[in-house]
Design a binder for these strands. Structure first.
Lengths: 348, 348
DNA sequence: ACTCTAAAAGACACCGGTGTCAAAAACAAG
DNA sequence: CTTGTTTTTGACACCGGTGTCTTTTAGAGT
């Protein structure tokens, strides 16, 4: 049964109400809430009953004050890919579900020069225990430094170690990109184009390295005009597509550093009347919703993003998430997903 | 200048530190923080200086406790469209930026039968002042009832009034859908297909009504086999496409109730070798990222989602967001966006 | 200078929890 | 039945702010 909380005038029951009803001191109730040992089973039961009867829920603000620490963790992101953010967030919530923690989500405007100041204000005001930084802002060292300065723990999420291992959660993107490109090579592709992510992004560099690794293994090299710069946006994919597909000897396959750019390349292929995958194979990266919304469906690399969210939370605040000890390695496995945008090259 | 907060052993300065430094009582400092009147300009200045010197930031937990109310608002969502959620969230943050409010974001698992119970636990634990419900869960009356029961204000966001006007923020989707369909008719289309959203969704019904309105005005009717059910998912779009485009006399244009389904229809058109928009015009709804990532770019309806977020926040907690008085009408304007997926029908 | 009033500042309790340490209860051993 | 130990419980201060009410100060009027 639940107390009549809906009625006007009725208030949230407090620890005092519980104590009075159970006939014990508030400190004893506090002990029950916090699962202290040194409590007689009989007393615990009585208090537990009183809690149920009143529908008592401890006031998190009061607890935070008394504990001299709050129970907030923050998710800082500036992600062009909304689905990624939400999936990650879901993973975090999976991990903290049975804890006392709450999650604050905070978009960060990377472009703004007030960015650092804004984040500082946010962190100073909310004082979360820890913060999780999603790529690309996870690569911002000033941000990490700010967290350190303010005594806020942090975890950086990314495709490679960006910091000490204790501060990172990452995935083996490089390896999986290599695997995807090997697949293209295995199908017979020799002229493979590459559309890069933005300069200065670790993730972009990782993917590029994976690409080159696979090429090297096969004794191939990337023709300079088969390389296109990009910035992870659709428009950059279109530009890259225009450039690569207008060549006298265009690539028969293109690896794009994310799905959005792959969609851009694909639309250029369509508008030029090239069939995909018949005349051009395309691979993307992210497994964003776009990957399955375009036609043909895009072969891509899936980031274990939800798991990374859960892992990031456990890495950030292991002391609040009892049970699971932190596994040794912070690297989770991405997977290559084959759909319909890849086939053997047309016979010359 | 800022205090040496990074150093180990140094603590957050409290109101007491400020009071001591300024040589006043903590209550006076409190008055300055809360912009009380009845404070001598000289004193205010002294306190303000002390605050700056120490880098003092009031502890929100302590304030919440003393005020007997916290400063949290919650965003409850279960949205297939991540971008929508993030844009809405951004709008909310725009609105609360200069206030004391903080935002909790909480995904809700609509499918789960524990959904209501989960939300109840969340609300009882966090006790936010108010909650904003994004569609489709904004249509859930049980959820609204739960908020009322727990004394949590709420605002429902949707494409039509779902509740009292005080509890709603919506947009004129019906009208804009009609406008889009009129455009098709104006181009000469007579056989126009319709792919509906899920049964029981207000948004789906609104869009359908708008569609019929435009048809009626032009003296047209929807052939029964030009209607396809759907659920806002890509796969449903594919099914609808298969059904509509296999007809002996297929529609020359299709209005899809969201972009994802439109993408599905488009991919079927591609695979059947139909050119879009040459042989088939397609219109979507949402202006999701997908709309511009597919080829040809999709004509669609843009929801003023960020503005709605800001508006929802102001409607929810006008008393915390000074300045802007609430405008009378809670209906914001959606807009029809023309891209490349619409053209005049091929001559028969 | 003196009173009166309004403005400004302070004292102290309180919000709803937890930490500390002492007191009470329970139990074992002599 | 005492005494000594170990569990269990409670009293009270405190976390960092705000509300209420009182006191002090400043300024106006006579």
């Amino acid at each position: 049964m639940r107390a009549n909380k809906g009625e006007p005038g009725s208030k949230q029951p407090t620890i005092n109400d519980v104590a009075a009803l159970a006939g014990v001191s508030k400190k004893t109730v506090s002990r029950v809430i916090n699962r202290s040992e040194f409590i007689a089973e009989k007393t615990r039961k009585a208090v537990q009953d009183a809690i149920e009867t009143l529908g008592f829920v401890p006031n998190p603000q009061a607890r935070a004050l008394a504990f001299r620490r709050n129970f907030l963790i923050a998710l800082l992101h500036d992600n062009p890919n909304a689905q990624t953010v939400l999936n990650f967030q879901q993973g975090v919530l999976d991990a903290i579900k049975d804890s006392d923690l709450a999650l604050l989500v905070r978009p960060v405007d990377r472009g703004s020069d007030r960015m650092l100041e804004d984040v500082r204000i946010f962190l100073e005001k909310q004082r979360p225990i820890g913060a999780m930084l999603l790529p690309p802002i996870s690569e911002n060292d000033a941000l990490a430094a700010l967290c350190s300065e303010l005594g806020v723990r942090y975890v950086r999420v990314g495709s490679a170690l960006l910091d000490d291992a204790v501060h990172c959660v990452s995935s083996n993107d490089r390896e999986v990109v290599a695997e995807a490109v090997r697949r293209l090579i295995g199908l017979g592709h020799r002229r493979i184009g590459f559309v890069r992510g933005p300069v200065g992004f670790r993730s972009a560099a990782e993917r590029e390295e994976g690409f080159h690794t696979a090429l090297r293994e096969a004794g191939l090299t990337l023709a300079p005009n088969h390389f296109a710069p990009g910035n992870y946006r659709y428009a950059a994919g279109v530009e890259a597509g225009e450039a690569l597909l207008s060549l006298a000897e265009p690539p028969t396959a293109v690896f794009c550093s994310n799905d959005e750019m792959a969609a851009g390349v694909m639309s250029v292929a369509h508008s030029k009347g090239l069939s995909v995958p018949g005349q051009l194979s395309i691979i993307g990266f992210d497994d964003s919703p776009t990957a399955t919304h375009i036609w043909p469906a895009l072969s891509t690399v899936r980031w274990p993003i939800r798991e990374m969210g859960a892992r990031a939370a456990r890495t950030l605040v292991p002391d609040f998430l009892d049970g699971t000890a932190i596994e040794e390695s912070p690297v989770l496995a991405s997977t290559f997903i084959e759909r319909q945008s890849v086939a053997a090259p047309a016979q010359p």
